[in-house]
Every structure is written in structure tokens, then in C-alpha cells.
Design a protein around this nucleic acid. Structure first.
Length: 152
DNA sequence: GCCAACGTTGGC
DNA sequence: GCCAACGTTGGC
């Protein structure tokens, strides 16, 4: 399988690229959307590149990460009282999965959503579509090529 | 603060 | 199985 490219969203107040740099590796847990789960569980492989996207007041790509562990059951779903707890998931037949990602680098400057929207070739990116809420998204290789140039 | 988009829930 | 109501996301 050829290397793939992904985009994951996070609100900086919840988990930022600074947090990822500090942690080095983090479990991308707490995703409670089936489509996003399926991408993590079925398609993300070790070594895939991850664009780290910040939603909120200043939306844009803030850094790069890499998948460093393929999907395994999301522990936060089993923790009563945890905000991501899901009574419907259990260890025998888990509903939710997450991968681990590791910090690669921050971008020198945040690659703003407004820039992405204006850049030829990125019109089809999910993140540039109005109303796109998916928190784990595939990125096409040709889109990655464009973004890699912008992210120098 | 507003609102469009979208996913989920629940009544039928 | 349908679909209206509701809650959440997230850009503006």
C-alpha cells in the first residue's frame, strides 16, 4: 500500500500542535464519528503523513505529524465519567478505535484555511468544503504535493 | 452571536 | 424505515 495522507482536526484549546510537540506521541482518541473511525481503523498505516489542522478562531494547518501505530480500541470509550465514554462500546466488541500519531514539525506559519480555499488544486479538499465537519479526512497525493510546497 | 451543515435520536 | 427534532461543529 502506497503511503497515504490525512488531515486531522483539533481545537487548539483542546489539543494543539504545541501539545503534540510536548507529548511527542499521542493517541488520537475520542473520535465519535463512524466515517472518521473507519478511516483510522481501516486505512491509516504506520508512516502515513498527517496534516494537523486547528479549528476555531484561526483555522488552518499548524503542523505535520505521522501515524506511528495502527488502530486499536479507544480506551476512553471504556472509562466511565470520561467525556468520551460510550456505554455501547465494550472490550469484547469495541465500537471505537484510534491510531497513535507522532509529532513531526510545526509549520513556520500557520497555513490558513482562507489560503487553502484560494489555492488552485485544493478545491476538492474536504476541509475547504462548506460544512465539512469530518475530523479525520483523507488527503489526495496531489493535494499533499501542493500543501508541501506551501508549508516549506 | 449567528447560522448552515450534518449526524444522531426517537416517535411513529 | 422514515423523517422531524435536536445537538454539535465550525466558519464567519
Amino acid at each position: 500500500m502506497a503511503k497515504r495522507f490525512w488531515l486531522v482536526k483539533s481545537e487548539p484549546g483542546v489539543y494543539s500542535i504545541d501539545d503534540l510537540e510536548r507529548d511527542g506521541v499521542t493517541a488520537w482518541s475520542g473520535v465519535r464519528n463512524y466515517q472518521a473511525r473507519n478511516f483510522m481503523r481501516d486505512d491509516m498505516r504506520v508512516g502515513d503523513t498527517v496534516l494537523f489542522y486547528a479549528s476555531g478562531d484561526e483555522p488552518g494547518i499548524t503542523g505535520l505529524a505521522e501515524v506511528c501505530k495502527t488502530a486499536y480500541p479507544d480506551e476512553t470509550a471504556f472509562k466511565k465519567g470520561h467525556e468520551s465514554f460510550d456505554a455501547k462500546s465494550n472490550r469484547e466488541n469495541p465500537t471505537w478505535f484510534n491510531v497513535d500519531i507522532k509529532f513531526v514539525r510545526q509549520l513556520a506559519a500557520r497555513l490558513e484555511l482562507s489560503t487553502l480555499k484560494k489555492t488552485p488544486g485544493l478545491e476538492r479538499m474536504m476541509v475547504t468544503q462548506k460544512g465539512s465537519r469530518l475530523s479525520v479526512q483523507p488527503v489526495r497525493p496531489e493535494e499533499w504535493e501542493i500543501i508541501a510546497k506551501l508549508a516549506k
